[in-house]
Design a protein around this nucleic acid. Structure first.
Lengths: 206, 206
DNA sequence: TAGATTGTTAATCGATTAACAATC
DNA sequence: TAGATTGTTAATCGATTAACAATC
């Protein structure tokens, strides 16, 4: 029934969700592919093509129902489910993520692990020594492990969380992780983003 | 002389740099496209195609000189130049970025701005009220403004930094910024990355 | 009904991969 | 020289855009 969804489309899903949520909060009830396209700076054709690949939630001659579209996007990305997260690495980035509130209700950081835990206080979130990782994962449902260690520690930490049974990794460390096929890794690299900016800056000068 | 460089290639440049730097630090002097391809999980053909689009730094029958390749990648991305950065928004993310040391010697955070500066202490980095932004930019060379405010403030802050003469923006706020054509914006969205992970997790279950 | 807008096919465009001559 | 490996063209693959019938 469902058509194949290309990686290119998947990367656009969060942006669609952001725009549609915005329209929903403004009280809009319907929207056309043309209007979405203008808000996102893409073509209307692409918007329709993308939505169609999930089954097509629109109505010809009318457009898309904002509420329905929002809820479909939530279903597709599983945003209505609870995701229990742990963070490995309590450095600048790890602590910032632990305190960040912008991911929505479905994503909760339950614990933060590091080799040194002294003096780290993160409110309701448990701060535990990395040695207790496996024990913690056995006793608690962990959906996502966030790796925010230095590069040098990332490979070992990835092996440890996989060993502890975690199936999904959100990797902030600037290195490719080698994991079994049933483990999902999503990489996010701030350096890479900054260097791309630097490239465009540099090109303009040269 | 230089061929057109596609966006797809540009996004791979930082990863090439990472791999080549790693090889350099290990003391390797030469490397083949095949070896790089294996480290990055791409095809050797793509590696050669990509490098060739910048002019081709290799030698037939031999491979690529690691030191030369590293220095060419640095030139292309401007990593050997100094980039003076300011951060607008001293929340979790802003403070984490201010303290982060992983971007290399060419990227220095000089000041952090926010509407409230009381009690924020960031070592050598100045913490200033947002009202002093324009004055600061007039007196100091600012190459990159990092926007790490909440979404609601981002549009106004973007307008302010543009007004203050900053030409390059690194945007962490989850919203599209509307800027003049001569201003470069690079977006990085943690939510989007997390939602993509969530999509893949969800798809496996469904 | 007439106008609007989707869903979807076909055409175009761009990116990746394969292949191999050039050459170190 | 023989083997290795690039640089680059051609072929394939995938993603985007255009077009329009279907239909609300």
């Amino acid at each position: 029934m469902e058509k194949t969804v290309s990686p290119a489309i998947i990367k656009r899903l969060p942006r669609y969700y952001r725009v549609v949520t915005h329209l929903f909060n403004e009280g809009q009830t319907k929207v056309s592919s043309k209007a979405i396209a203008e808000l996102m700076d893409v073509t209307a054709s692409q918007v329709r093509q993308d939505f169609c690949s999930f089954g097509g939630y629109g109505q010809q001659g009318y457009g898309y129902d904002v509420k329905k579209l929002k809820s479909e996007l939530e279903n597709i990305m599983g945003l209505n489910k609870m995701h229990n997260m742990i963070i490995i690495g309590a450095g600048n980035i790890g602590r910032a993520l632990a305190g960040y509130k912008g991911f929505g209700d479905g994503f909760k950081v339950r614990a933060v692990f590091d080799v040194v835990t002294d003096g780290i206080e993160l409110g309701e979130i448990e701060v535990l020594n990395i040695s207790r990782l496996k024990e913690y994962c056995a006793e608690n449902k962990v959906d996502i492990a966030v790796i925010s260690t230095p590069r040098s520690a990332a490979a070992k930490v990835a092996a440890d969380v996989v060993d502890a049974g975690v199936k999904n990794i959100w990797n902030f460390a600037p290195t490719e992780l080698d994991v079994p096929g049933d483990v999902i890794v999503e990489n996010i690299s701030m350096s890479e983003s900054l260097y791309v900016l630097s490239y465009y800056m540099n090109r303009q000068e040269g």
